[in-house]
Amino acid sequence: MRRQVFAFSGVLTPRPGERGNRPLLEHVLALGAERRQTEGPVRLCYVPTAVGDDPAAVSAYQRVFGGRDDVVLSVLTLFPQPSVPDVRGHLLTQDVVLVEGGSVVNLMAVWRAHGLPDVLRECWDAGVLLAGPSAGSLCWHVGGPTDAWSERLAPFTEGLALLPHSNAVHDDSAEQPRRAAYRRMVAAGELPGGLATEDGVGLHYLGTELVEAVTVRPGARAWRVDPDGADGVVERPITPRAL
């Protein structure tokens, strides 16, 4: 089985005429369908740990995917206890595990309390597509900048590290200086080099190698950012394919 991850920056504020995150989610389903290699609906498990298993987030995904013939949607919540009796068995039967954005710090703390890191690595090895926006993107990497502790961005390095580099999301956000903060952290050695995505851009990895970047927003890009050995960084733009 191919080990694969699709990590993306969701569209925080859709522009007039944009479809928001829907094309990215449809791309996730398409990758899940390719993984199946057989006829039948895509088995998608939504994991909203990073937003504290918010019922509103669960309802939103149930509205989008619950009535479709090409998707079998399940939800794994962990508050106050796991919503399925066998978490490992359930996740290993999925085509896609889709992790919600939110607090990556709280996400990883709860996952570790429930033994999810080992289970998710097993899913990855078994070819289950691991996907998600924001915190659901950072978690598969070593880490990245986060505002989970305070309003100020800080380096987080306790991700699953399936992908052995850092990740920065919402790299073009006007609300916080995420672009500058990420590059400063890489230059200072607080984060290893890695990949940043602007809003609407996703990264598809096979194993630990990036095979494609995609976007729902014209002009949006991904960036490879590495330390230059002289208190700075070298950055290389990656032009994504439009979905």
Rank of each mutant, 00 (worst) to 15 (best):
G66T: 07
L78R: 02
A33M: 10
P41D: 01
G102M: 11
V87F: 05
L29A: 04
G52M: 13
T49V: 15
A33E: 15
S74C: 03
R88H: 11
H90C: 12
S83V: 00
R88Q: 14
V110Y: 08
G66K: 02
Q94W: 01
V87H: 04
D95F: 08
L107H: 11
L73P: 01
A109C: 08
Q62E: 15
G101H: 08
V87M: 06
A33N: 07
P41T: 01
P82L: 07
V96P: 04
G67L: 04
D53A: 10
T77G: 09
D86R: 00
T49S: 15
V58K: 02
L92W: 00
V42I: 12
Q94A: 04
F65H: 03
P82M: 06
Q37S: 12
A33F: 12
E39F: 12
V47T: 08
G67Q: 06
Q37F: 09
Q94N: 03
T49N: 12
V110I: 14
D86K: 00
P55D: 09
V110G: 06
V75N: 00
G66M: 06
A30L: 14
V105A: 13
P85C: 10
V72N: 00
M108F: 07
V72F: 00
Q94F: 02
A57L: 01
V110E: 09
V96R: 02
G52F: 14
V42N: 02
M108E: 09
V47D: 06
V58R: 03
A57Y: 02
L98Q: 02
G67P: 07
S103G: 11
N106H: 14
T38F: 10
L78C: 10
D95C: 08
V84G: 02
L78I: 07
P48S: 11
A33D: 12
A109I: 04
R35Q: 15
D70N: 03
G66H: 06
P85S: 10
D53Y: 11
P85E: 10
R68Q: 10
F65M: 05
V105C: 11
F79I: 08
R35A: 15
Q81W: 09
H90D: 09
A109R: 15
L44I: 07
Q37C: 11
C45M: 08
L44M: 14
V64T: 14
Q81D: 12
T77E: 14
V97A: 00
V99W: 12
Y61P: 01
C45P: 04
F79G: 06
G89V: 09
S83K: 01
D53V: 05
R35N: 08
L29T: 04
R63C: 07
E34K: 15
D95Q: 05
M108H: 08
V72T: 05
P85K: 11
V71F: 07
H90P: 02
S103P: 12
V58A: 04
G89N: 12
E39M: 10
E100C: 03
E34L: 15
A33Y: 11
V110S: 07
T77F: 01
V104K: 06
